[in-house]
Structures are given as structure tokens and as C-alpha cells.
């Protein structure tokens, strides 16, 4: 296990280098440069332009820029936005807590509603509740996020006025709607995954064994069936959390939440390469870390998986 963990961590390094090169070169291979993007529809005076180009090392060959950038990244410095003159680290430090809170609450929704719906559906397979879960998850999966977001904002925020429409001014209350919207898609997947997984598990021989042992129905389901059925679900949620922590572009923008995705979205729109590259890199790191954790968690949850 220890060796596996070390190997797995070492494996992150080449993955990270590959991903960073891809992101960097893709970001900087686009026509034009950040300084022109900063100038807007009016060309910048030459001297101002040159001063900025020098300041952001844009006069160096792309590969040197990459090496320089990665050198900075290794020291924990993800660069500075040309358009905003702000350190990427500062922007990220400001936005990540919001994204994290949003992601965490979204996962809570996934866990509570998704799991419950999935379990009920599996136990009532073929009955009304099962059909209800199937139909509503299909709807949840097919509604575009922004449609759901706008609708909830209008109904819950404007019509009923029971939750804030946008922003984070009201703390936890502000998070409920966006977290729900953010979690909806995964919530539906979790419900379906739980349903399928649990229904399959219920047919397993060991569940029959548990029944034959004279265990209470709740214990047969909870201790014996769910414990196995939830392994893929937990894995999914872990990976999902990793993805959500990378920022939720649409949800954060619609709900005006100053998170990672919110900034990433605007940076893409304004060609703010430094933010796009820096944020994407950090998101990749978070994702890689989360998948490592999920892998290790998987081993802890399923003793059949041996990493030796």
C-alpha cells in the first residue's frame, strides 16, 4: 500500500508536466498576445506595449517562457494577469474558498438526495417511486444548467423571495440555490448509479447469505448490500468533487459567485491567458490529487483491491 501510494504520487509528476505543457502551449499558441488583448480596440502606444511585453517575458521564445513559467510554478507562483495586473495566486486564493464551499454543498446534495433517491428506487424497483426517480433524473440530466439556474432564480428568488437570487451576501442561504443547481446533474447520476449498483448487489449471493443469517432487513440492506453497492458511488462522488473544485463556470457566473469558474469564464472571454493557464493548471493539480485520494479510498473500501 505504501509503495503503491508512492508510485501513484510519482506518476502525478509526468502527468502534471504533460498537462501543463499542453495547457501552456495551447493558451499561448492562440493568435495575438495578452498585451494586444489588453489594448482593446485602440492600439497601445509602442513604448507602453514594449514595457508590458518585457515585464511579462513575452519577448522570449515560447519554450523559454514555458520553462520560466514552470520554474515559477514550482516555487508556487502562478504568474500575473496582464489584463488585471494581479497575481494569479491572489485571485485564486480569493476565489477558491467560494468554489470549495459551493462544491462541498453540492456534494452534500448529491449524497443526501442522490443516494436516498437511488436507494429508494432500487428497493422499489419497477414500482411508482422507481419510475419517479428514473423520470426525474432524466429530466435533471437533460435540462441545461443555465435554464435550471435562471428558472430557480426567478421562481425561488424573484417570485417567492425565499432565497437570494445571486451573490454570497447572505452566507449559507446564498449557497443553497447555486449548490443545488451545481449538484443537480451529478445528483441525478448518483441516484441512477446507486439504483443500478444496489439493484445488482441485492441479487448477490452474499445478500442471500445475510438473509439466511437471520439479520434484520435494514441490516441486510445497510450493512451488507449498501456497503458494497456504494463503492462505485463514493468513487464517483470523489472524482466529481475533484472536478467541481476546479470551478463551476456556468453556475458561478449565473449566481454571481466569485469563484474559480467565474474568473475562468471571464478570463476566457477577455483572453486573459495567465488566468486561464494558471487556473487550469491548479484545477488539474486538484483533480489529480482527488483521483489519487479516490484510488486510495477505493482500496480502503474494497479489500479485494490490493496495491502490491
Amino acid at each position: 500500500m505504501v509503495r503503491y501510494t508512492i508510485r501513484r504520487i510519482l506518476l502525478i509528476i509526468p502527468t502534471f508536466i504533460g498537462a501543463s505543457a499542453l495547457i501552456f502551449f495551447a493558451g499561448f499558441a492562440l493568435p495575438g498576445d495578452p498585451v494586444s488583448a489588453f489594448g482593446g480596440e485602440r492600439a497601445l502606444p509602442e513604448a507602453t506595449r514594449n514595457a508590458l511585453i518585457e515585464r511579462y517575458r513575452l519577448d522570449q521564445p515560447v519554450f523559454d517562457q514555458y520553462l520560466g513559467y514552470m520554474g515559477d510554478v514550482l516555487t508556487g507562483d502562478f504568474g500575473e494577469s496582464v489584463l488585471r495586473r494581479r497575481s494569479i495566486n491572489d485571485i485564486f486564493a480569493e476565489t477558491f474558498p467560494n468554489t470549495l464551499r459551493l462544491a462541498a454543498l453540492a456534494v452534500v446534495f448529491e449524497l443526501v438526495i442522490g443516494l436516498l433517491a437511488g436507494i429508494v428506487a432500487a428497493l422499489r424497483k419497477g414500482k411508482f417511486l422507481d419510475s419517479l426517480v428514473l423520470v426525474s433524473t432524466i429530466i435533471a440530466i437533460s435540462i441545461p444548467v443555465f435554464v435550471l439556474g435562471f428558472s430557480l432564480q426567478y421562481i425561488v428568488g424573484v417570485q417567492w423571495q425565499i432565497l437570494p437570487v445571486a451573490g454570497l451576501q447572505e452566507g449559507f442561504r446564498s449557497l443553497i440555490l447555486p449548490a443545488f443547481v451545481l449538484g443537480t446533474l451529478s445528483l441525478a447520476y448518483v441516484a441512477r448509479l446507486t439504483r443500478t449498483s444496489l439493484a445488482e448487489t441485492l441479487r448477490e449471493d452474499y445478500v442471500r447469505t445475510a438473509q439466511a443469517k437471520g439479520l434484520r432487513h435494514s441490516r441486510v440492506i445497510g450493512r451488507h448490500a449498501l456497503r458494497n453497492a456504494l463503492i462505485p458511488v463514493i468513487t464517483f462522488i470523489g472524482i466529481d468533487l475533484g472536478a467541481l473544485m476546479g470551478g463551476a463556470i456556468v453556475t458561478e457566473t449565473i449566481f454571481n459567485i466569485n469563484g474559480v469558474g467565474f474568473n475562468l469564464f471571464r478570463a476566457i472571454g477577455t483572453r486573459d491567458n495567465a488566468i486561464v493557464v494558471g487556473f487550469t493548471l491548479i484545477a488539474v493539480m486538484i483533480y489529480l490529487t482527488m483521483s489519487l485520494i479516490v484510488d486510495l479510498l477505493y482500496a480502503a473500501l474494497d479489500p479485494r483491491i490490493r496495491y502490491e
Binding site: L105, V108, L111, F172, I237, L301, P303
Partner: peptide
Amino acid sequence: STTRGWLRWFAIFAVLALVLVACGD
């Protein structure tokens, strides 16, 4: 660890998530 029950894992996970939300708050 696994003999302590999966419910514990589940609970830890959920609590952790809630703590994150609360902390940020």
C-alpha cells in the same frame, strides 16, 4: 478500519463536506 463500518466513512465524508461549507461561511 473496514470492520468499523462503512457508515463511518460515509459520515466522515458528509461531515467533512459540511464543515467545509460552514468554515467558508
